[in-house]
Every structure is written in C-alpha cells, then in structure tokens.
Computed example of a mutant assay.
Amino acid sequence: MKAMVLQPPIGLDRLTLADRPDPGAPGTGEIRVALHGSSLNFHDLGVATGRMPTEDGRIPLADGAGVVEAVGEGVTEFKAGDGVVSCFFPNWQDGAPTIGDFSGTPGDGIDGFARESVVMPATAFTHAPRGYDAVEAATITTAGLTAWRALIVDGKLKAGDTVLLLGTGGVSIWALQIAKLMGATVAITSSSGEKLERARELGADFTLNYREQADWGRLVRDWSGGRGVDHVVEVGGPGTLAQSIEAVRVGGHISLIGVLTGAAGEVPTAALMGRQARLQGLIVGSRREQQDFVRALDASGIRPVVDRRFPLEQLADAFRFEMGASHFGKIGVEW
C-alpha cells in the first residue's frame, strides 16, 4: 500500500511516498475503505511541519473519504460500494464533548488518511453527502463540521440572524454557505479584494478589507445598525478577538475555533463582560453532529468550495500552497 509518511526529522522536505503493509480484511465491527481524497487543514500543516509534535513515520491528514470495499461481521450501517467520509474524533460518537486533545485524531495521535486504504471501526466514518466526490466529501470532516457546530449546534442560528466571519479559508467559507442556507445575513473580512468579490458571489452581504480598515469590529457594528452581530466565527485568536468582541451584540455568541494569530494573548475581559457575550472554544464535533450535517447537505444541494487539487504524491507542494494563504475555501488532495 502506498502512503505519504513523515520521516524524521519531521518537515515538508521529509514528507515522502512509502510502502506500508496492506491493512487486510476488516474484523468484527470494522470496514475496509479505499481512500481517494482528502483536504488540508491548519492542524494538518502544524503536524507536517513539526510545529505540532507527532510520532516519526506518522501518516498525515485528518480528513479522508472514499468507498467501502468490505465490511466486517456485525456491520449493518454500511455496505460495499458506499461512499464514506472519516470523523475527526472517531471516539466521540455523540453527546457533550469529552475529548480535549488530539491523541485519537487521525494524522496526529494515530495514522491519518494520506494512503490508499484503511481498516477502521465502522463508527470512525459516516456516509458521504450524496453526489460529492472524495475531495468534496473530505472537506466536511474538519472545516465543514466545525462551521456547522459553531453556527447550528452551539450557536442555534436562525433565519434573520447576523453573522461575522473572519477570512476566507475553509471554515469561514463553509460557515458562509451554511449561514446563507439558514437565512442569515453575513459580514466577512479578508485582506484581498478579489477574495471579497468571490465571497459576495457566494452571498456575503457586507465585506471589508481588514488591512485597509483596522477598526473592522466597529465598522461591522455600524453595519448592523449599532446593535452588533449575533454570531462571530473567530478563527484568528488573540490578534483578532478584541475586534470580534467589538462587533458582537450584547448577549451574542463568539465561537473561538482558531488561533491563526497565536496560541496566547490578552483578552479584553472588561469588554467581553460588558457585552455579556458567550465566548466558546470548540474543536470540530461528534459523529452524530456530522451525520446531521450530512443530512442537511443532502437536503440542500450546496457544494463545498475547493480552490485547488493536488495529487497525493505532491502533498508537500499542497502544504506549501496552503502556507502561501492565497487559497479561497479548501485545498484538496486526490488519488
């Protein structure tokens, strides 16, 4: 079996194509999946560059999608030929979060999906959305489900709500599509006028360039009539949180789902207290939430935005493209 492997010392120059043993036939409760696609996340980049430590020889990539080749005894949810997509937390099936690390996350604590096939418990996958190819399906595992949980599961988004999104990466563009599907009004930021135009084509109602308008939080508040937005999907962390608090309404909801500007920094606690806003950290979601998301996608017909696709053997180049931050939406890998 061909697989991309992180050889020591871990770094993009040491990401190599290697032979790994075939996973064999599925056992009781397991399925064998022929993998055909993945998508890149900021988390994957951290692992591949060594910023987030993992074991030498790790197979990267948290997202994986493909076709069921065989099912083990006792598996009734899937059959050979079904399109499936992986779960970011294969051990979190339902209910409130109980996992706060990445020890069981594919591509980090365990081997990921940059390989031709895998045998895993059936509960580590869900059905893929109907009509999605493998790359499209793989975008829901991390980015799509994070946006879904932030707005729908935790945020309780409803028609008529206002939403602020930061940047035009995978989570933010999925959140834009979900918010518009639900009848929300959306503001979005970027440093690129071209990306903002593409966001408007997807339905964004208000766009602004954060490099040209440093006080974008106030401008979003003004756009909302002085009330502030109901929801913020906060991907930046300490470098953007103050502006997000400025933009949110009293009693609003901020989903802290990223740390693109750093892992630590000052929090304007007085401003947050004054807003009486709910600041909630979250990491992706459960298998049950992913199943709910897939049902919504099947009913809606929306498709993910994939900026560019790379063959598996060019995975290092795909990560370098991600580091350039020129992409809009997701970056795919296919084989």
Rank of each mutant, 00 (worst) to 15 (best):
A3H: 10
A3D: 02
L6H: 12
P8E: 13
G11D: 10
G11T: 06
D19C: 09
R20D: 00
R20F: 11
E30Y: 04
R32M: 09
V33Q: 06
A34E: 14
L35Q: 07
L35A: 09
H36F: 05
F42T: 04
V47M: 04
V47Q: 02
P53T: 01
V71I: 15
V75R: 03
T76F: 00
K79G: 15
G81M: 12
V84D: 03
V84E: 06
C87G: 04
F89T: 08
D94K: 14
D101Y: 07
D101M: 09
F102L: 15
T105Y: 05
P106K: 07
D108Y: 12
G109T: 03
I110M: 12
D111K: 12
G112A: 11
V119S: 13
M120V: 03
A122V: 13
F125T: 02
H127E: 05
A128I: 09
P129F: 03
Y132T: 01
V135I: 09
I140A: 00
T142I: 11
L145P: 02
T146Q: 04
W148M: 02
R149C: 06
L151Q: 00
V153P: 01
G160R: 07
D161R: 02
V163W: 05
L165W: 05
G169W: 02
W174G: 02
I178A: 00
I178E: 00
A187V: 09
S190D: 10
S191V: 07
S192C: 08
K195V: 05
K195S: 06
Q213H: 15
A214P: 11
D222Y: 03
G236T: 10
T240V: 10
T240L: 06
I245S: 00
I257P: 02
G265T: 13
G265W: 11
M273F: 14
R275L: 05
A277C: 14
G285W: 07
Q291D: 13
S300A: 14
D307R: 05
R309F: 00
P311S: 12
E313V: 14
F319A: 08
F319C: 04
F321Q: 12
F328V: 10
K330N: 14
